[in-house]
Measured scan of single mutants.
Amino acid sequence: MQGVVKVNSALNMRSGPGSNYGVIGTLRNNDKVEIIKEVDGWYEIRFNGKVGSASKSYITIVN
């Protein structure tokens, strides 16, 4: 499943599904990500070869 980031500035990509996990990357508006699965309001995603988590509130699913 594919998604597109929708933010005003930037979205942190984290090492796990929650804001208490470390930041491993930064996503910008309109970045395209691969959604692997949903976990507690977060998506596990793949972006630029990295796997991490980002809040699903800022990612829109595209077909």
Rank of each mutant, 00 (worst) to 15 (best):
E38G: 04
N48I: 05
K37M: 09
L27H: 01
E34P: 01
D40H: 09
F47I: 09
S9L: 11
R14C: 09
L11A: 12
W42E: 01
T26Y: 09
N20C: 12
L27G: 01
N30Q: 09
T60G: 06
D40Y: 07
T60R: 11
I59A: 00
T60A: 11
V5D: 02
T60I: 14
G16V: 02
A54S: 05
N12T: 10
R46C: 12
P17E: 03
I61T: 07
G52S: 03
G52R: 00
T26Q: 13
A10F: 15
I35L: 04
R46A: 09
V23S: 06
V51Q: 10
G41D: 11
W42K: 00
K50E: 09
V5H: 02
V33H: 00
S53F: 15
K37R: 14
R46P: 00
I61L: 11
G16K: 01
K56M: 11
Q2M: 15
I24T: 06
S53Q: 06
G49V: 03
V5Y: 00
R46G: 04
G16D: 00
S19W: 15
T26R: 11
N20V: 06
V23Q: 05
V7S: 13
K32S: 09
S9R: 13
G49P: 02
V5A: 04
F47Q: 03
N48A: 11
G3F: 05
Y58Q: 11
V62K: 05
V62Y: 08
I35H: 00
E44P: 00
I36Y: 07
V33K: 00
V39N: 08
R28Q: 13
R14T: 07
I45K: 00
I35P: 00
L27A: 03
E34G: 04
S19F: 15
Y21A: 04
Y21M: 05
N30C: 13
G49W: 02
N30W: 09
I36W: 05
N29W: 07
S57D: 15
G25H: 07
I61S: 04
G41Y: 05
N48W: 06
K32F: 12
V33C: 05
S55K: 15
R46E: 09
S55A: 13
A54H: 03
Y58R: 09
L27I: 06
G25I: 09
Y21N: 06
S9Q: 12
G3A: 07
N20A: 10
S53V: 12
N63C: 13
G22P: 15
D31I: 05
N29E: 08
V23C: 08
K56D: 05
I24G: 02
N29L: 08
V4A: 04
G25M: 06
S19D: 15
R46F: 11
Y43P: 00
I36L: 14
N48S: 07
G41F: 06
M13K: 02
I59K: 00
V39L: 11
V33N: 00
K56F: 03
G52Q: 02
V33I: 07
P17R: 03
V7M: 05
V5T: 03
V7C: 15
D31F: 04
R46V: 13
D31M: 06
K6S: 10
N63Q: 13
S53K: 05
W42H: 02
N12H: 14
V7I: 11
K50V: 14
V5W: 00
V4M: 09
Y43K: 00
V23E: 05
K50Y: 09
I61P: 09
R46H: 08
D40M: 08
N12W: 07
Y21W: 09
N8Y: 07
G22L: 12
I35K: 00
E38L: 08
L27Y: 00
N20L: 06
T26M: 11
S15I: 06
R14V: 07
S57M: 14
S19Q: 13
Y43W: 06
G25Q: 08
R14K: 06
K32W: 12
Y21C: 09
